[in-house]
Amino acid sequence: MSARVVVALGDELRGRVLAGADLDRLAAAADVVVSLDPAELTAADVCVTGWDTPPLPPSSYADGARLRLVAHTGGSVRYLIPAAALDRGVRVTQVAAVLAEAVAEFAVMSIIAGLRDSVGFATALRASEPWADLAARPPGRLLRDRTVGIVGASRTGRATLHRLRPFGCRCLVYDPFLDKADAAALGAEPVDLQRLLRDSDVVSLHAPVLPATRGMIGAAQVAALRPGALVVNTARSALVDGVALLAAARAGRVRVVTDVFDAEPLPVDDPWRRADGVVATPHIAALTADTLREQGAVTVDEVLRFLAGRPLEHEITRAAYDTAA
């Protein structure tokens, strides 16, 4: 009997992530059902999930249930499936490695754009500010001559460091799980968080949200940032005291580029939308047409490996689950 694969994605996300050819590849190897019905999830051997998939019902991973693999087309899985499911033998795979490439590119773009104040110049030009006044604005700074602090040597943090190397900037990294040899291989100097905040011209956040990292950039840490520092957050808003960071941006002490917020969608009257010193984007750091299709293709590749009894390439092990995003 063929394995039963339930594609638990809404119509819109499924259309963006899974190409017809990828669905055909699945259908050639398994009995494929497209459904968000909890009853269907409970009867699945494999679930393909996404950002719009609700948490899996406990019946799907209870003792005696059929579920053997959750193949997630996104990155974060903790909201979707609990550690107890992995303890009962359910395997989990995701595409954080795919998303990391897109987010790292966006982070480097944000760093360069922030250092050069390209959004500020473009906004002033659109508002008809006189050309001479624009020329008299404070000039931007070269990335080459800056110190960039990376908070979190996650996949995205590492991919960002890789992309920064050709620019010749000095890189610091804070991650309690990273040793000196690994940091050196990434072209970065390992430091504690306080020194990173104090010495960096740019601070880019790439840590997962865990009990130990939630609020790790609090009011005291915001105050420790050097005047004029640029803070880039493409990770999660829960890492930062948003009130303190926003106040520092409004006071002109720091500048901020952020793609993540405590409330999403961001309310129309939220001060993050229009605060001076802030460039805000609507959680799109990982969102490219190329990335979406790659998410689907890599997920299907993983399901086919699993069905063929081959090793998975993007599995979240039980040990890794506790520190995963």
Rank of each mutant, 00 (worst) to 15 (best):
R4V: 01
V5R: 07
V7T: 12
R14M: 09
L18F: 07
A29Q: 07
D31P: 05
P38N: 08
L41D: 03
A44V: 04
C47Q: 06
C47N: 05
T53W: 02
P55L: 06
S60N: 10
A62H: 11
A65L: 05
L67V: 10
R68H: 05
R68W: 11
T73F: 12
P82L: 06
L86G: 04
R91L: 11
T93V: 13
V95Q: 14
V95R: 10
L99H: 12
F106R: 14
G114N: 11
V119G: 06
F121T: 13
W131R: 14
A136F: 09
L143I: 08
D145Y: 02
V148E: 01
T156V: 15
P166M: 09
F167A: 04
C169V: 01
D182M: 11
L186H: 12
G187F: 03
V191E: 08
D192M: 02
R195K: 14
S200P: 01
S200H: 02
V202S: 01
P208D: 07
P208S: 06
P208W: 00
L210T: 00
A220M: 04
R226Q: 12
P227I: 08
T234H: 08
T234W: 02
S237V: 00
S237W: 00
L239G: 02
G242L: 04
L245P: 05
A249W: 12
T258I: 10
D259T: 00
D262C: 01
D269M: 03
R273M: 10
R273G: 02
A280H: 00
A280Q: 00
A280N: 01
I284D: 01
L292G: 04
A297H: 13
L312P: 03
E313C: 15
R318P: 08
A324I: 10
A325Q: 14
